[in-house]
């Protein structure tokens, strides 16, 4: 996967979430975005997922610009998967329908093929027994695994995960980390915004530290975590490792 942000600025009213942000990532499988909350990680991820349009600047993924027109971005979003911090499953559908409906309505599966595919994916994530339960009847960890299954089901090349474990207790976090492991085994390109240093170090080939709307530092995971160069990343990582 190649990613390229060139002078990207993202403003919400007066607030700048990203400020002249540039980042270049070449030929890696998994990128972790780390940094303080409100620093711009989630914005970076939402821009990458084609969910929002930058105020200025250009974003390329694998050599192609993410289109500015809505039809272009809709077509782009159909080829990727997104996992949110708060799962964002549809509360009025059971787990199976949450996974199967996009397959049927967006990806052209027949109803029976979509259900078959959804059942096999839920089975991979040990969720078969829960497939007829609605999100309100599932634990946070189970919900996040359904959300990961939903993102994986249409077989996208790239999956974006926005703080997938931040809303979960340690036990559920472990479940979800196992599920993310499966995405890596399935050879998916991943971009993960996370506070989970273990996940970043273990899964990511490259880490980008983002703070105050700017790229602070980027490089191979082990190198950035063990030997950060800039004072800002030393401060952030120091805080992470102290507690």
């Amino acid at each position: 996967m190649n990613l390229r942000f060139e002078n990207v600025t993202m403003r919400y009213g007066q607030q700048s979430a990203l400020d002249d942000f540039s980042l270049s990532v070449d030929k890696v499988r998994c990128v972790a975005l780390i940094g303080p909350s409100g620093g711009g990680k989630s914005t970076t991820l939402r821009l990458l997922a084609g969910l929002e349009i930058p105020s200025s600047g250009s974003i390329q993924i694998n050599g192609t610009e993410i289109g500015l027109s809505e039809p272009q971005r809709l077509a782009y979003r159909k080829r990727i998967g997104v996992v949110f911090q708060a799962f964002n499953l549809f509360p009025h559908f059971d787990a199976l329908t949450n996974v199967a409906l996009p397959l049927e309505k967006v990806h052209g599966y027949s109803l029976s093929a979509s259900i078959e595919k959804a059942e096999s994916i839920l089975d991979q994530f040990q969720l078969s027994e829960h497939r007829f339960k609605k999100p309100a009847e599932l634990s946070g960890g189970q919900n996040q695994r359904v959300a990961i299954a939903r993102a994986l089901a249409p077989d996208p090349d790239t999956i974006f995960l926005d703080e997938p474990t931040s809303a979960l207790d340690p036990e559920m976090t472990a479940e979800v980390l196992d599920a993310i492991e499966k995405l890596i085994e399935a050879q998916k390109d991943l971009v993960i915004a996370t506070h989970q240093m273990g996940l970043a170090r273990h899964a990511a080939d490259q880490i980008a530290i983002i703070a105050e709307g700017k790229l602070v530092e980027t490089g191979p995971a082990a190198q950035v975590i063990e030997n950060p160069q800039s004072p800002r990343s030393q401060k952030f990582l120091g805080a992470c490792l102290n507690f």
């Binding site: 979003r77 998967g81 997104v82 949110f84 499953l89 996009p102 967006v106």
Partner: peptide, 13 residues
């Protein structure tokens, strides 16, 4: 809003 974002991410029109 999270529901709308989710629908968008899935590729719903």
């Amino acid at each position: 809003r999270s529901q709308l974002l989710s629908a968008k991410a899935i590729g719903f029109s």
